[in-house]
Design a protein around this nucleic acid. Structure first.
Lengths: 158, 158
DNA sequence: TGAATAAAAGACTTTTTTGTCCTCTTTTTA
DNA sequence: TAAAAAGAGGACAAAAAAGTCTTTTATTCA
């Protein structure tokens, strides 16, 4: 388990972010994808297949087949991935696990959590993969090139 | 798994909140506690024991024994429970699961997440169990009395 | 002192999540 | 058309988390 999303969901996010930086007609195999971003090939295949079934990504069998994004990056939000893989609990359930923690029966941290949850939802839904792309490219390059290697010209100064 | 904390951690939070509304010398058995707040008795015993070992709560064996809080409520913070049961990952790891997501190698949502995380930390650490007590009493009463029963005089108006 | 109560301790089982492997089908290209 | 590449699908295995049960130890009280 990650800190807020399941491992499976984190894998899905990484995979889709990776697809988002490729050219639209550039399919990538589960093997190549998992080699690049350091996730397990077999499990990645499983998760990618689920994402295809869910309609988040597309796939094509055979030589030169692979996974790819069919939609415009403007139309894909991180929250779609979260909802598909992990469900809607983050946006519905009580953060302390109290049952029926709604407007009336508030848990002790309900007042604060409402605002925080709204910000999380905002973080995941107001910017599309297109908006995230510059940072995604940078992060993925850093991951792929490794920690020791500096990204030329626009590398970290701090 | 809850939405942000493990089931075990949620159980621990509920149990300690329950202890926080009792008189200081009022010990409660695992059975009574779990009956009241609707958690499983045997698993609760396990978790309560861990909390004793961790020094968060106290216990006493034998007739009229049970679990209780030894410290002042002002000195107990929710974040202590989180850190003890679930560790420090929520405050250290990347929300998208990217490795080494620090000041330099930022993930695509890093800018937003930093502020959100700070608010979560604030929510869990700036108010003690003493501050939370009024809401805790209300919430626990609602849980114990059940949904159909209205809490007299200070019940929900909305 | 013996019975009852309640935590401590640990073994054990079940469920969920994660991860692996194998075979089948589709697609392309030589 | 055969070989190779790559996803689809399903069975299976391992690990982690959650949950159950039994025995032992400590404490109180009649």
């Amino acid at each position: 388990m990650g800190i807020m999303f399941s491992n499976k969901c984190e894998l899905a996010i990484k995979a889709i972010l990776y697809l988002s930086v490729l050219d639209k007609d550039n399919k990538v195999s589960a093997k190549a994808l998992s080699d690049q971003i350091g996730i397990m090939k077999d499990y990645a295949s499983k998760v990618l297949q689920e994402l295809v079934v869910a309609g988040l990504i597309c796939s094509k069998q055979g030589v030169h087949g692979g996974f790819y994004l069919d939609k415009n990056l403007e139309d894909i939000l991180l929250i779609d991935i979260i909802r598909t893989v992990d469900g809607n609990g983050l946006f519905e359930n009580c953060v302390l696990g109290f049952p029926g923690c709604g407007s009336c029966e508030d848990c002790p941290v309900h007042d604060k959590w409402g605002g925080i949850r709204a910000q999380i939802e905002d973080m995941l839904s107001t910017r599309s993969l297109a908006d995230l792309k510059p940072k995604t490219v940078k992060k993925l390059l850093e991951m792929i090139l490794g920690e020791g290697i500096k990204v030329p010209s626009w590398g970290c100064q701090g």
